[in-house]
């Protein structure tokens, strides 16, 4: 079983870049060997990004819902996925559409976990809003916990 972390978002749309910034922080702090990539939330790119692995963790910012910085874990196929997790995509297809398309084509990874951090400000510019910036370390910890849970599952099934 192979695992890849895919971060999506737009660093120039404030909190929309939280997934990418968390992925970079995770890459700096994590001592193990996990493939971490940044991708645009677009079907051709995402289908390529997860094409050769069976487990992916996707990091993205979620739309504001009153609790900026809130971290959620969504297991695709078990939990409902918000229609579009990115509020700042300039494209006709976002992450949710790409996941639905991959599923329709039978090309979705066996396990897809979407870790989201709720954003507050998706305006133009760089830098995270205060609440989201304060929650990034927790988001990185959530990524670590998720990878460890996947590793434990692998060991159990080995």
């Amino acid at each position: 079983m192979t695992l890849r972390i895919i971060a999506v978002g737009n660093l120039n749309r404030r909190d929309d870049g939280a997934g990418i910034l968390a992925a970079r922080a995770f890459r700096r702090s994590f001592k193990g060997d996990i493939d971490v990539v940044e991708s645009i939330a677009e079907p051709a790119s995402l289908l390529t990004a997860w094409g050769d692995v069976d487990t992916v963790i996707i990091l993205d910012a979620s739309a504001p819902a009153g609790k900026p910085g809130r971290i959620r874990s969504i297991v695709v196929g078990q939990d409902p996925l918000p229609k579009e997790t990115s509020a700042a995509s300039t494209h006709a297809f976002g992450l949710a559409s790409a996941l639905e398309l991959a599923n329709a084509l039978g090309e979705a990874p066996a396990t897809t976990i979407v870790l989201t951090i709720e954003g507050e400000d998706f305006g133009y510019g760089e830098g995270l809003s205060q609440h989201v910036a304060a929650a990034i370390s927790n988001f990185v910890q959530a990524i670590t916990d998720c990878t460890q849970a996947i590793a434990r599952k692998r060991t159990t099934h080995a």
Partner: peptide, 24 residues
């Protein structure tokens, strides 16, 4: 939409994605 189309015309959508990927 393309997601609904992909269920019945998966090969066409896959071909389209492969073409787009080359442009990317």
């Amino acid at each position: 939409d393309a997601v609904a189309m992909a269920r019945d015309h998966g090969d066409i959508v896959r071909t389209g994605l492969a073409i787009k990927k080359a442009g990317n």
